[in-house]
Amino acid sequence: MTNYDELTEFLLRLGDSALIQAQRLCEWTGRAPALEEEMGMMNVGLDLVGQARNWYEYAAERINDGTDADALAFRRDERAFRNLLLVEQPNGDFAVTMAKQFFYDAWQFHLLTLLKQASDERIAAIATKSLKEVTYHLRRSTQWVERLGDGTQESHERMEKAVDTVWRFTYELMEEGDTERALSASGILPSLATLPELWRSTVKHTLSNATLTLPEPASSFYLNARAGVHSEHLGTLLAEMQFLQRAYPDASW
């Protein structure tokens, strides 16, 4: 397997997370609780596909072996994907979907805010553009978590259960990896050391408004997306997402 440099690894982490989150949102097409909500979710999904494309195009230029954004999305295997474990988890009910979305949005929001200051101009530009979209995504998912958490008894119970269901995968959002630390040390990225605290503070605030319990910080376990060791769910997701390009390589409209 190809060894990518640290910046490329970081770009793939951002791009893969956005793409897989978008793919999970797509699964709600035709099944959302209301037409309006479906449009809202698909808009978020489309924003994320656009963000993934921007990160992939930059990554492809760095890899510089003829690959492109489509190839990175559709021709890599599970072990090469660097997305957060959180976003590959099944959608479950609407509460689980919103819990995943909210935790991811809060992470994206603070990460992109920090990345706006990156000395790498390309990263700063993509972060600035994406942050506008993500600010809205976070607003939507925050309101859903609060609405369901502080809603009826059933919605409260389901939202609480949803937080518990996906919480263990949030350890990755609380962890500054060696890759990020090295990129910050070499001055390409600003320091991301504050990200875990920023994320937890946003989550704490919203869960409190939603009358939900804030769990203790999650700890790492044997799965490790940075090394391509994913949960069993990513493989089946990719099988569906990549089917067309695998079966009919270079198919186009």
Partner: peptide, 12 residues
């Protein structure tokens, strides 16, 4: 509610 109405209107 009103907040969701604004967001749904924005999205539609």
């Amino acid at each position: 509610d009103q907040e969701m109405a604004i967001e749904n209107a924005r999205d539609l």
